[in-house]
Design a protein around this nucleic acid. Sequence first.
DNA 1: GACCAGATTGTCT
DNA 2: GACAATCTGGTCA
Length: 202
Amino acid sequence: MILPLSFYTKKTVTVAQALLGTVLVHDTAEGRAAGRIVETEAYLFENDPACHAHRGKTPRNAVMFGPPGHAYIYFIYGMYYCFNVVTAPEGVGEAVLIRALEPLDGIELMKRRRGTSELKNLCSGPGKLVLALGLRPDQNGASLLSGPLTIWTPESFNAPRPKKSDIVSTPRIGINRGADLPLRFYLKGHPFASRRCSVSKR
DNA sequence: GACCAGATTGTCT
DNA sequence: GACAATCTGGTCA
């Protein structure tokens, strides 16, 4: 079953945790690629200087201010894209960054797209999973409720539904502002989560 | 395994 | 003109 709109209208932090264990699916002409979400980060409208929406609406972040249940895909560091799920009511700029997947379906396709055969290296980072799933910048703003890009319940893929006690929260990764907020969530001890946990770097 | 530099470009100040 | 919600490949141990 595809996650309904009501899934995305809850509080952003709640959605970020509830997304763990669900399955992100992308159907293309090349075939289906799907993975279980094992790591997310929440980006909030208020009191969160790391959020793109924090300084108001711009052409780039406009999708974050749109209706929930849509994809926000943006370009970063000159060569990568990040995939987010828009949450919060229309007019409020919040989203959940999908940071890592456990590959489930279309693994050969993912390996080809990523140019590696190492399973753990296919989707263990926000830039990597965008490549592995074949997401493109023109998917920015696409609905996740129908169409080629969707998110499914764990049961749809016979995947386990995580318990509350399996979810760990830590500070987010790769940001400077708001780096102390514990808005990153991942499944405890999961081998497919992205590396670089809490290294101090400048 | 840990740490560091480089790649590369859209976006906002 | 600086910087960014990153990744890869190098060096050193």
